[in-house]
Amino acid sequence: MANQSPIPVVVNGAAGKMGREVIKTVAQAADMNLVGAIDTTPEHQGKDAGELAGLSEPLEIPITNQLEPMLAFASQEKQIGVMVDFTHPDSVYDNIRSAIAYGIRPVVGTTGLSPEQLQELANFADKASTGCLVIPNFSIGMVLLQQAAVTASQYFDHVEIIELHHNQKADAPSGTAIKTAQMLAEMGKNFNVPVVEETENLVGAKGCQGGEGIRIHSVRLPGLVAHQEVIFGAPGQIYTLRHDTSDRACYMPGVLLAIRKVLELKSLVYGLEKIL
Score class of each variant (00 low, 15 high):
151 T>Y: 15
188 G>F: 08
212 E>A: 15
231 I>Y: 09
209 Q>D: 15
52 L>I: 01
15 A>R: 00
246 S>V: 15
99 A>K: 04
276 L>N: 07
66 Q>H: 06
55 L>R: 05
88 H>C: 01
116 E>L: 11
164 L>W: 07
57 E>C: 02
62 P>G: 02
7 I>V: 11
226 A>L: 13
18 M>F: 15
68 E>Y: 02
102 Y>A: 11
221 L>N: 07
251 Y>H: 10
79 Q>G: 01
201 N>H: 14
8 P>I: 02
224 L>C: 09
88 H>P: 01
221 L>H: 10
272 L>G: 00
129 S>W: 08
97 R>V: 15
86 F>W: 05
66 Q>T: 06
247 D>V: 12
25 T>G: 00
234 A>K: 11
73 F>P: 00
108 V>D: 10
144 L>I: 14
17 K>W: 10
231 I>D: 07
4 Q>A: 13
270 Y>F: 14
238 I>R: 14
108 V>L: 14
264 E>H: 03
51 E>T: 09
77 E>K: 07
8 P>H: 01
180 T>W: 07
183 M>K: 14
141 G>A: 14
239 Y>K: 07
3 N>C: 10
187 M>H: 13
95 N>T: 06
250 C>V: 12
229 E>M: 14
74 A>Q: 03
143 V>S: 05
34 L>S: 02
225 V>K: 12
198 E>W: 10
213 G>F: 01
57 E>G: 01
18 M>E: 11
176 T>Y: 14
137 N>M: 14
212 E>L: 09
188 G>H: 05
137 N>D: 15
234 A>M: 10
269 V>D: 00
268 L>H: 01
101 A>C: 12
93 Y>K: 06
190 N>R: 10
2 A>M: 08
161 I>D: 03
36 G>K: 01
140 I>V: 13
143 V>C: 07
44 H>I: 13
120 E>G: 06
76 Q>M: 12
135 I>D: 01
37 A>F: 02
70 M>C: 10
162 I>R: 09
78 K>T: 12
154 Q>T: 13
223 G>E: 07
73 F>M: 12
234 A>P: 08
66 Q>P: 04
117 Q>R: 06
104 I>Q: 04
236 G>C: 04
119 Q>F: 12
3 N>H: 10
256 L>N: 01
34 L>M: 00
157 D>N: 15
106 P>T: 05
126 D>W: 12
173 P>C: 05
84 V>M: 01
148 A>C: 03
129 S>K: 11
109 G>P: 13
142 M>H: 09
174 S>G: 11
17 K>H: 08
55 L>C: 03
